[in-house]
Amino acid sequence: MLLMRKKETSEEKSVKLVAYTIILYISSFFVPFVIVASFQSLVYFSRSQWFFATPFSAYITFMAGMFYIAVVFTIFLIFRQKWDGNNFKIITGLLLLISIPAFYFSLTNYYYLDDKGVHYNSLMSVNEKEYKWENVHTVHIVYRNHQGTVSNYQYKFELNNGSIITLPYDDKFAENVGRIEDKIQQFGITVKDNFKNPVLD
């Protein structure tokens, strides 16, 4: 009787794990957009910011982390009867731990602009970096030719030390172009563009 209950419990756990795995596969396509955006708005957003944005790389990385866990669960379910034992469970647990950096770096990948300058935390960076307006040497406005229509594509901020921060031209950015132009005039920043030779898409 005890063995029967133990077997049933094991089967129930397997069924639940299969369900969790399927849910992970499906939810990995939309949950990252909810979790990453919600977390960053609670932790990093400030009223002093002109706008706050999350790079698409953050969502993709979080999605990859969820998908990776689902794959590990799938492998565990396939080989658990053949390799059943503590060692196999320990290896599976270690494989799951590998996904932690993906979630951490995706949650800390963001950028925003304010009166001080451009603030950017890249995907593989631990700390946020501040690029002050007075250190911006040139602003490169990148245009794109998409199906015959030329429009803004990116803004590249080139610093005095030669490094470049590239930000996409989206709706949030467009709403704050006036503020950026004010800073360009205030600090005498050089502006260049490729309007006559746009990027072909």
Rank of each mutant, 00 (worst) to 15 (best):
M63Q: 13
M63R: 03
A64H: 06
G65D: 08
G65V: 05
G65K: 05
M66D: 06
Y68N: 06
Y68T: 09
I69T: 11
A70H: 05
V72S: 02
F73W: 08
F73V: 01
F73P: 00
T74N: 08
F76W: 14
F76E: 09
F76V: 05
I78Y: 14
Q81D: 14
K82C: 04
K82G: 03
W83I: 02
D84N: 13
D84E: 12
D84M: 09
G85W: 08
G85M: 07
N86E: 12
N87F: 12
F88T: 03
F88S: 02
F88L: 03
K89L: 11
K89E: 13
K89A: 15
I91P: 01
G93E: 04
L94S: 06
L94K: 00
L97M: 13
I98W: 05
S99F: 05
I100H: 00
P101S: 03
A102H: 04
A102T: 09
A102N: 09
F103S: 00
F103D: 02
F103N: 00
Y104H: 09
Y104L: 11
S106R: 00
L107M: 14
L107C: 10
N109P: 07
Y110M: 04
Y111K: 03
Y112V: 07
L113T: 04
D114L: 03
D115C: 00
K116C: 01
K116G: 02
K116S: 12
G117I: 02
V118H: 02
V118I: 15
Y120N: 10
N121C: 14
N121L: 05
S122A: 15
M124L: 15
M124H: 09
M124F: 15
S125G: 08
S125L: 04
S125P: 04
V126P: 00
V126M: 10
N127E: 15
N127R: 13
E128D: 12
K129R: 14
Y131E: 08
Y131T: 06
Y131A: 05
Y131Q: 06
Y131G: 04
E134Q: 12
H137S: 15
V139E: 12
V142S: 04
V142M: 07
R144L: 10
R144Q: 13
N145Q: 09
N145P: 04
H146R: 11
H146D: 13
Q147M: 12
G148D: 06
T149K: 13
V150T: 13
V150Y: 01
S151K: 12
S151R: 11
N152L: 15
Y153Q: 09
Q154Y: 14
Q154A: 09
F157C: 01
F157W: 03
F157M: 02
E158I: 10
E158S: 05
E158K: 13
L159D: 05
G162C: 07
S163E: 15
S163D: 15
I164N: 10
I164E: 14
T166Y: 04
L167R: 02
L167N: 03
L167T: 06
L167M: 11
P168I: 03
P168R: 08
Y169N: 09
Y169W: 12
Y169E: 11
D170N: 15
D171C: 00
F173I: 00
A174Y: 11
V177E: 15
V177Y: 10
G178K: 10
I180S: 05
